[in-house]
Simulated assay, not measured.
Amino acid sequence: MNEILWLQFAHIVAFVYWLGGDLGTFVASRYVVNRDIGVEARAIALKIMLACDQGPKMSMPLILPLGMHMSVSMGLVQIPTWALLVVWLLAAVWLGNVLVLYFNEGKAFTARLSQFDLYFRIAVVIALTVFAVMGLLDQAPIFADWVAWKILVFAALVCCGIAIRINLKPFVPAFVKLMSEGPSELVNNTMADSVARCRPWVWIIWLGLFVNAAFGVHLIG
């Protein structure tokens, strides 16, 4: 019982940092693209935005093994111990990659790590979707449909993160240009459009987190 309580506690903490960090990132992004404030203030806002974004980026790989471990301990999912260890190992690799990218931002070697991170997330989405759908079809050892739905929602949230990354691609070179050449209509519009395209995906992430929280406390499912 103590193990389950500690897993639940860690799972809740990860949820809080994911949702809270996302909110901080969202608010800071509005100042980054605010053309009415100075370049230095926008640079500081970007630093705040990136720091806040580490909450969700670290919570995402942690929530997965915590939730899986808790489900196995509660008898809701049945997988061998070695498979659970593999889940934790992959989550550690994912989390380690996130931290290396953050603390080495701008260095040449991070380009390959960033590409690896993208492909890793795509693989996670595919694996979790297949596992959850098989569970709903009684072809995988998931003994509660709400757990399968939580896994599907989590996979969708990872997809939203990928979509945000894709839509932020024009933002980075535009911000570099802002820092080196100063503001211009083109730079301001590019940054604002890029961030605006990300907002719907952020809202979907928030909705997904609320839905999974509702599954977790059995409000639904």
Rank of each mutant, 00 (worst) to 15 (best):
G20C: 00
L157R: 03
L178E: 02
W82P: 01
I220P: 02
H69M: 12
P183W: 09
V27G: 09
E40V: 09
S71F: 15
L168I: 03
S180N: 12
S29L: 12
S29M: 15
V86G: 05
R42P: 03
M179D: 06
L101S: 11
M191R: 04
M179T: 09
F103E: 04
S114E: 15
I151F: 06
V133D: 04
F171V: 01
P183T: 03
V130R: 01
A111W: 09
C52E: 13
A214I: 01
L136G: 10
E40A: 14
R121M: 15
Q139L: 14
A144W: 05
F15I: 00
D22N: 10
P80N: 14
I205S: 10
L99Q: 06
I126Q: 07
V13L: 07
V93R: 12
C52F: 15
A111H: 13
S194D: 13
V27F: 11
V125L: 03
V77Q: 08
V124W: 05
A108H: 13
P80A: 11
V172K: 07
M70R: 07
C160K: 06
G96W: 06
L209P: 01
L157N: 03
K177E: 12
N188V: 04
L136A: 06
L5R: 10
A174G: 00
N2W: 10
Q78R: 14
S71N: 14
I205W: 08
L23I: 02
I48C: 14
L113T: 10
I63N: 00
S184V: 02
R121P: 07
E185Y: 04
A192Y: 09
K169T: 07
G38I: 04
V153R: 02
L136N: 02
I204S: 02
I79H: 08
F154P: 00
P141K: 14
L90W: 05
Y102Q: 03
A92E: 09
S73H: 07
I122K: 08
W203A: 08
K150R: 11
V147D: 11
P65L: 11
P173I: 11
F9C: 07
A51P: 08
E40N: 14
V153E: 00
V13E: 01
I205D: 04
V195G: 07
P80G: 05
A41P: 13
L66R: 14
I12C: 03
V195M: 09
L113W: 15
N2L: 12
I151R: 02
Y102L: 07
D193E: 11
C159Y: 05
A196W: 09
N189G: 06
M1K: 12
A163R: 12
V217S: 10
C159A: 13
V39E: 10
V133H: 04
M74P: 03
Q139G: 13
L84G: 01
